[in-house]
Design a protein around this nucleic acid. Structure first.
Length: 260
DNA sequence: TCTAATT
């Protein structure tokens, strides 16, 4: 005996607010915020320019500390425009660095763009080495990070063996020695940083900084190493290193801005 | 080109 069940879905479940040019694109991305700034203080700073619909400060998933990046959605686009004029490049009272205020990108749009861009990006074969498949692992992780918006870490596999070196220990994420690498080529990817720094010791994490829209490297990146001695040796060895036709500048990351 | 980050 067979029972057939027919389920009907309503054609429309809910209706959004009528879209209007005046309330569209009123969302701002704010970076360079003092790590101590609270969401309330962020709203107070922006409230002089209009009615705030939502606000957010992004925090490190593990430590809970502010990443210095946030969002403000105004009621009206004109309010957001005025806030950019008034606050972009300005120092909030008590801050030592100016903040950047700009219109936010569309998150779903970014995710699909980045996924496509990475999927169709051919592997970097200019610097072949034993860590290549390790780099591939982390490229996959990068895809998953973007797809799910979550930081993931995996044990490092070298030549089929699982190494405990560099494996992330819960609670120790974010610790280590952050190294600034400057003068990378626009098509650099994470694999070059793994290959450059891996031989000097335990590398926790690498990141190539890319332009949000073009996905091209902006010329610099970061490497986090577990042990000070190994990080110092890597810096001493790689600072001034000629990579292709570029001379790398490698140092511990500082908090200085380019305006000094 | 000299320190990112996009809910």
């Amino acid at each position: 005996m067979t029972t057939r069940v027919s389920i009907q879905f309503p054609e429309q479940v809910s209706y959004a607010r009528p879209s209007s040019a005046s309330i569209r694109d009123a969302n701002l991305y704010v970076s360079g915020l003092p790590k101590t700034m609270t969401q309330k203080e962020l709203e107070q700073l922006f409230s002089q320019y209009g009615r705030i619909i939502t606000s957010r400060i992004l925090v490190d998933q593990v430590t809970g500390v502010s990443r210095g990046v946030g969002f403000i959605r105004f009621d009206k686009r004109i309010e957001a425009e005025e806030a950019i004029k008034g606050l972009n490049g300005q120092k909030p009272s008590g801050a030592t660095e100016p903040i950047t205020v700009k219109f936010a990108n569309n998150p779903s749009q970014k995710t699909s763009q980045a996924l496509l861009s990475q999927l169709y990006q051919s592997p970097n074969r200019r610097y072949p080495g034993p860590l290549h498949h390790q780099a591939q692992r982390f490229r996959l992780d990068n895809l998953l990070n973007m797809a799910y918006g979550v930081k993931r870490f995996s044990p490092i596999t070298i030549d089929g063996m699982t190494s405990l070196v560099g494996m992330n220990i819960p609670g120790h994420t974010g610790t280590g020695w952050c190294i600034f690498v400057y003068n990378l080529s626009p098509d650099s990817d994470e694999s070059v940083l793994w290959q450059l720094f891996g031989p000097f010791g335990a590398v926790n994490n690498v990141k190539v900084i890319r332009d949000f829209n073009t996905n091209k490297c902006k010329g610099f990146g970061f490497v986090t190493m577990t042990n000070y001695d190994e990080a110092a040796m890597a810096i001493a060895s790689l600072n001034g290193y000629r990579l292709g036709d570029r001379v790398l500048q490698v140092s511990f990351k500082t908090n200085k801005t380019h305006k000094s």
